[in-house]
C-alpha cells in the first residue's frame, strides 16, 4: 500500500515537473519573441544611454527618463521615474514600457521587471569602446541598426582622427582630476587605469599618471601627486562657465604643490561643463578639448 502510494506520488511529481518545464519553456520562447519586437515605449534610467538613444534616432520611442536626465533638451519635458538608487517601479510599470534601460547595479528593479515580464536592457559603464558597442547594441534592440552604425562609425572616425593627430607627439604625464573639496586640495578624486575617462585621456595624447591603478577612479593624496610629478593636470569642473576670478579661485589651491611640473609650468587646465563625464555621443567633444589642452 505504502509502496503503491509512493509510486503514484513519484508519477505525479514527474508529470508536474515536466509540465513545469514545458510551461516555462513556452513562456521563455514567447518572452524571447516579445523581446525581439521593436520597442515603442522605452524608459531610460541611465542619462548617458538616453543621449545615445536620441543620437541613434530612437528618441521618439523614449517615453520617460530618470530624474537626472537633462540632455538632449527634448528629455526635459518627459516624465521622470526616479533614478539609479530610487527607481519608481510603480510608475515604471504604470507607463507600460516595452523596454527599460537599467544600470547593472539595479538588482531589485531587475527582479521586479522580470516578475511583470517587462524586458530590460542592462547597461554598465565600460571603456571608451563600450560607448560604440552600446550604440550598436541599442540600434539592434530598438530597430535603428543603420543609423546606430552610422553614428558609431562617425564617432570612431572622429576618435581616430584625434588619435592620429597626436600620434608621434610626446605624451605628457597627465593627472585627470574629476573631484575635490572646493578651495582646497582635500579629497582629490582622479581617473585611474581603466574606464572611459582614462581612455579619453589616452586618445587625447596624454599618459595617465595613475595608469597602474586598476580602477576607474581613485582617491589620491597630495603625496602621490608630488611623487608622480604630472606634467599636466586636467581638472574637470561641472560649472558651465568660469569667469577669470572664479578660475583663479579654482586654480589657487594647486599652487601649494609648486614642485609638480604641471603647477610650476602653469599647465593645470580646468575643463568646464557637465558633458565631460558622460560616456555618450558628446564624448568626442571632451576628447578634443583634452587633446587641445595637452597639445596646444
Amino acid at each position: 500500500m505504502i509502496k503503491m502510494l509512493n509510486t503514484k506520488n513519484t508519477k505525479i511529481t514527474k508529470t508536474f515537473v515536466l509540465s513545469l518545464f514545458f510551461v516555462s519553456f513556452v513562456a521563455f520562447v514567447l518572452k524571447d519573441v516579445a523581446a525581439q519586437e521593436t520597442p515603442r515605449r522605452i524608459i531610460s534610467l541611465v542619462p548617458n544611454v538616453t543621449e545615445i538613444l536620441f543620437a541613434i534616432g530612437a528618441g521618439p520611442q523614449v517615453i520617460a527618463v530618470s530624474t537626472y536626465d537633462v540632455e538632449p533638451p527634448e528629455v526635459r519635458s518627459l516624465p521622470t521615474v526616479g533614478a539609479l538608487v530610487d527607481p519608481d517601479t510603480e510608475r515604471i510599470i504604470a507607463l507600460r514600457p516595452d523596454l527599460v534601460i537599467t544600470y547593472g547595479s539595479q538588482a531589485d528593479l531587475h527582479t521586479q521587471l522580470k516578475a511583470v515580464s517587462i524586458p530590460f536592457f542592462d547597461y554598465r559603464h565600460g571603456g571608451l569602446d563600450h560607448i560604440m558597442v552600446t550604440m550598436r547594441a541599442l540600434g539592434q534592440r530598438t530597430g535603428h541598426v543603420e543609423q546606430a552604425d552610422r553614428v558609431a562609425r562617425a564617432l570612431e572616425t572622429a576618435i581616430d582622427a584625434v588619435r592620429n593627430r597626436v600620434a608621434g607627439k610626446p605624451r605628457p604625464k597627465t593627472l585627470l582630476v574629476f573631484g575635490r573639496e572646493p578651495g582646497s586640495l582635500r579629497n582629490i578624486y582622479a581617473s585611474a587605469g581603466k574606464g572611459f575617462l582614462h581612455d579619453m585621456l589616452t586618445v587625447a595624447g596624454g599618459e595617465d599618471v595613475l595608469k597602474d591603478i586598476d580602477k576607474e577612479s581613485a582617491q589620491i593624496s597630495t603625496e602621490t601627486i608630488l611623487a608622480r610629478r604630472p606634467d599636466v593636470i586636467i581638472e574637470l569642473n561641472a560649472a558651465n562657465r568660469l569667469n577669470d576670478a572664479d578660475l583663479e579661485a579654482v586654480l589657487s589651491p594647486w599652487s601649494a604643490l609648486s614642485s609638480v611640473p604641471a603647477v610650476r609650468n602653469k599647465r593645470v587646465i580646468i575643463l568646464t561643463g557637465s558633458g565631460l563625464t558622460v560616456p555618450g555621443p558628446r564624448v568626442i567633444d571632451g576628447i578634443e578639448r583634452m587633446a587641445r589642452a595637452l597639445h596646444p
Binding site: 597630495t222 603625496e223 608630488l226 611623487a227 601649494a256 604643490l257 609648486s258 614642485s259
Partner: peptide
C-alpha cells in the same frame, strides 16, 4: 608611500619650487 631624502628636504639651498622632497615633507 614615497621614500624621500630628509637631507634634501631640509636643504635650503635647493629652491623650494624644485625641491620635491621638501614639498612632500612640508606640504603632504
Amino acid at each position: 608611500s614615497t621614500s624621500i631624502s630628509l637631507a634634501r628636504a631640509f636643504d635650503r639651498t635647493i629652491p623650494w619650487d624644485s625641491n620635491v622632497d621638501a614639498q612632500i615633507f612640508f606640504v603632504a
